[in-house]
Amino acid sequence: MRLIQHPILCNYYVTYRCNAKCGFCDIWERPSPYVTIEQVETNLISLKKLGIKVIDFTGGEPLLHRDIDHFFAFAKKLGFITTLTTNGLLYPKHAEGLKGKVDMLHFSLDTAHKEKHDTMRGVACYDHVMESIQIAKSLGERPDILMTVFEDNIGEIEKLYTDVCLPNDLILILNPSFEYNEVETGSELSNQSLETLTRWGKKKNIYLNQAFIQLRRDGGNQTEKPVCKAASTTLVISPENELLLPCYHLGTKGFAIDGDLEKVYHSTEAQKLIKLEGRLPECQGCTINCYMQPSFAVEMNKYFWLALPSTFKYNWIKGTWRQLV
């Protein structure tokens, strides 16, 4: 049973450019412009009218955009819940400007071992994350640590939790790795690793959407009966100011927005693609967390009930649950 009919999340790519070179991501390899202030303001007003609750300014590395502070300020003015994930390299520069404007501030950190993390990210950023944590806390912010979990770093959870998160009272977000396009992310998470993640997800100050685990056990999205509601729950806007459908990772078409996002979204051609969400050949077996998380929130099924406790737990701690009701 569908509970919410309108989209609830916008993944807004302010640029694809990045100052890191993570081996499990190909976004940084793409040429990219930067979005403009006029585009962002116009689109945010339309997103509000379309029912969007959460704006995730993303990239690439979103802090590469010189106007990122303004984007967050405008989004908060319109009443959006805002999220930001950064590798930490530029956070110290933007920290003052972002103060009080980011509801969910995530610092990417995949291990408590400096050399290993920097190798995974392709650039020396571990020390910058450590510095960013202290700066954020000094400003009264409540950052989280976002750990992308692979087979070769799942054993790092304990040290990251005990050495970094608990002493700083940070939430550790466990983000199971996923494959897309031709990006190599290593072997799939084993059943043993899925069990390990499940156990960790029950601990204090750890967020793990248990529906992610069940979806992997079920073989991912199934095109004959899709759980993915990517296009109807999530709007994706590119740095070229296009609406991407049905999602960023498997998107088949970009629609030029030209100052009227609502018109584009409701157009016959866009709606045809939206109805194909989760049913395209590329959607078979998909486990992309970015789109499954909102998918689990809008339709009452077993994934909805599995996702509910952890989602409520996280939003209760962050104080954002009232805005999601």
Rank of each mutant, 00 (worst) to 15 (best):
C18S: 08
S187F: 05
G319Y: 13
L89F: 10
H117L: 09
Y161L: 05
N289P: 09
S232E: 15
L215N: 04
R17T: 00
E269M: 10
P92W: 05
W321S: 02
H106S: 09
H70G: 01
T111W: 11
Q323N: 12
V123G: 04
Y265I: 06
A307C: 04
R142I: 13
G259K: 13
E61W: 04
T287N: 06
D258E: 15
I206F: 05
A270L: 10
N301I: 02
L194P: 03
N43P: 05
R199Y: 08
S190I: 05
N168M: 10
M147G: 00
G23E: 12
W316V: 05
V102R: 00
F312Q: 08
D127E: 15
T42S: 15
A297V: 01
A95F: 07
S238F: 03
A256P: 14
V129E: 07
S295H: 05
S267C: 03
T223Y: 06
D103L: 08
K229V: 00
P309W: 05
T83D: 01
Y126S: 03
R30L: 09
L235Y: 04
V325K: 13
E131F: 08
N168P: 02
C25N: 11
I37R: 15
D258I: 12
D260Q: 08
G60C: 07
G219S: 03
H106D: 13
K101A: 00
G100A: 02
K202G: 10
N205Y: 14
V14W: 00
N191R: 11
K53N: 13
K116N: 11
A75L: 03
H94D: 03
G278P: 05
C228R: 00
T42V: 12
I171N: 06
S108H: 07
Y91K: 11
K99R: 15
P7R: 05
E282N: 04
N209C: 14
F24R: 04
P239K: 04
L9W: 07
Q134C: 02
A211L: 07
S193R: 02
F304V: 06
W305F: 14
T320Y: 10
K93H: 13
K93T: 14
G88V: 12
W28A: 07
L250N: 14
A231H: 01
V183G: 04
I237W: 07
E156W: 09
I52L: 04
L273P: 04
L308W: 12
P176G: 09
T58Q: 13
T311R: 05
A136I: 14
K101P: 08
N301L: 12
E184V: 11
T162L: 13
T268L: 13
P281K: 02
N87C: 00
L3T: 02
